[in-house]
Design a protein around this nucleic acid. Sequence first.
DNA 1: GAACTAATCCCTT
DNA 2: AAGGGATTAGTTC
Length: 788
Amino acid sequence: MSFGSLFDSAMLPYGVPAMVGGKPLFNSPALSLALQTNMEAQRDGSVLPVVTSVGSGDTAARNKEDENDCRSGSDHLDGLSSDELEPPGNSRKRKKRYHRHTPQQIQELEALFKECPHPDEKQRAELSKRLCLENRQVKFWFQNRRTQMKMQMERHENTLLRQENDKLRAENMSIREAMRNPICNHCGGPAMLGEVSLEEQHLRMENARLKDELTRVCALAGKLLGKPVSSMSTLSLPMPNSSLDLAVGTNNFASPLPTLNDFPNNASSPLGTVITPTRGAAANAMIGVDKSLERSMLLELALAAMDELVKMAQMEEPLWIPWLEGGKATLNYEEYLRSFNRCIGVKPVGFVSEATRETGVVIINSMALVETLMDSARWSEMFSCVIASATTIEVLSSGMGGSRNGALQLIHAELQVLSPLVPIRDVNFLRFCKQLAEGCWAVVDVSIDGIRENASALADNMKCRRLPSGCLVQELPNGYCKVTWVEHVEYEEVAVHQLYRPILRSGLGLGAHRWLATLQRQCECLAILMSSSSPTTDTTTITASGRRSMLKLAQRMTDNFCAGVCASSAHKWSKLVGAGNVGEDVKVMTRQSVDEPGEPPGVVLSAATSVWVPVAPQRLFDFLRDERLRSEWDILSNGGPMQEMAHIAKGQHHGNSVSLLRASAVNSNQSSMLILQETCTDPSGSMVVYAPVDIPAMHLVMSGGDSTYVALLPSGFAILPDGPGISGSTTAIGDGETKVGGSLLTVAFQILVNSQPTAKLTVESVETVNNLISCTIQKIKAALNCDV
DNA sequence: GAACTAATCCCTT
DNA sequence: AAGGGATTAGTTC
């Protein structure tokens, strides 16, 4: 009789293992006593158990036995060797009896695991009954299986990372090799020094990244292997160690701000954990190399741009030459070229530069501002009068540790000056965000024209590239922050009408001044809208939801107005060519409106032009937004004054508001007409946009209804100060003679010329709109006592 | 000795 | 109390 058979007799019915109350019966005093006697017997040799024949070697026989048995091996003591039998009295430290579940059991367990790695108690109980396993055994099995699974996943990931690392290393080697004999791409001769240093910069970047990746892989490998793996032992690079120590973005200047490397990035790269997607197929290898090369070039560009932006924002003279008035300054180009390597290459022939800087306090907290800048949708909403459209093409890094620090994305944007005489600026740029210190952030933009082809650029858009531009944000107490904005672009000037060249060159059109003023105005608006729980400033009482609805409608109106002036790619305007006797400077476009919610169906005509008016921008703006003087230029006024029915303030300045105007009726039978108007102004420019609206629709909106289906076609004005050297007019103010500039006024109308979308546009309707524009301009000039 | 696996300990939720 | 991570212990190759 074997020990096995002894234990067999201890089996409970149905093959349930010999366990009592969840504990092995082995611990039962009665049984251990029984065992003891047998063990002693075994030692004596008096009762030699069959064990000897089953003993150490005969696994095959045992395995076979296991297979035929419907029970776990846990109660088999067949294989128990004598030294596993513990001495008497040491019963607390029980020995484990090793076994494996039978293949059938494992098969069943695996089957369930495949379906559901987390079976509930019921499923487990059912399985344990079926497989003659203890409940806990099933539980343990699943638990172990899950950890095993996790291990496998991690290991797999580790292999992939290693492969990636190898690939990058090979790539680095080839670049290194290529650098040894630099050859000029154009002439085939030895390359110039400048090109080599560019290559060297790439290598530095690559090296930093490789080093990083290696540390990460080693850390992971170490974790899996349970012992530290030295990067130097796994990698014997045939190069001096010092080459690995080249820092990223080395500073040539003593910057008062810490560099990126000073932040606790630990083992991560400046962009956070960059895991390049793995591409298994060999055919993709080259694309992969190209991709990762491109990626590192983009990263390098972003870092260089950041470096430049921070310096541009902080350096004073001689880099910046201060203006006499205000805090403005112009860039000293000679000094600029001395101080910086042109990180996007030399200025193309025919391009002119525009560089401005502006500092101001904005009512927004620094994090919210950074978030807004890093979200292209929110960004374009914030600067809606400057940005015609903006899309994030690719997010290269979303930042590290849940913050925007290190975030890098590729953005396509169309920037506009509200005038048909200035083509839209089409730009593809990188936007890189970096935390410089606690509460201090920098967001830099830089064009990538040299790295990626600007495929989406439309033919009639202005060719433009952004040199490192952006802002430094410094958190201030009470929800304010100090913003330093730098705007530096190069663009093709021939496409710009003469009238607008000075203002663009001076940066008043799309420079730092304009961006910052827009930001200040919009943030003030947001702050007011969020704080105004009691609409005390309103002339009428509109509910909160009504105000929201109305503001939303006004926003759509203004956006459509801007789109009509500048024809961004987001809107399907088609330019009208050969439009009869339409003046050279009036841009006429048409569009078929079919099933557009929020617009009447039919053929929509948009006409816009810009003129110079010898009147200060402020005076022009005040005149145009005054509802009482409306009859002087607006045919919708029916010759009388208009009345303000509702007013929602959007800023401290009374000129920032959305209002509802009522025109006087021509006669008593006619119901009066409503006009929705939005006006906005800041030191960089102003706008008056309005549209006639349906009375019942407006009632719906003001009671908080959905404004999406309210049809409107906006018209209005955009006012910019004229550039230096345009007006030259001087006006005596008080006792001193102050130079007062004139204004650049853009007038734009959108009208429905036919309610049949398929109708052909007639010469008459073009003439009508042309007349409308010239009449309006004449009336305005006359009212302001300008020479007509 | 490394890889695998059942079981245990101990901690968190 | 359940579940998971770390660890242990027994086994196989």
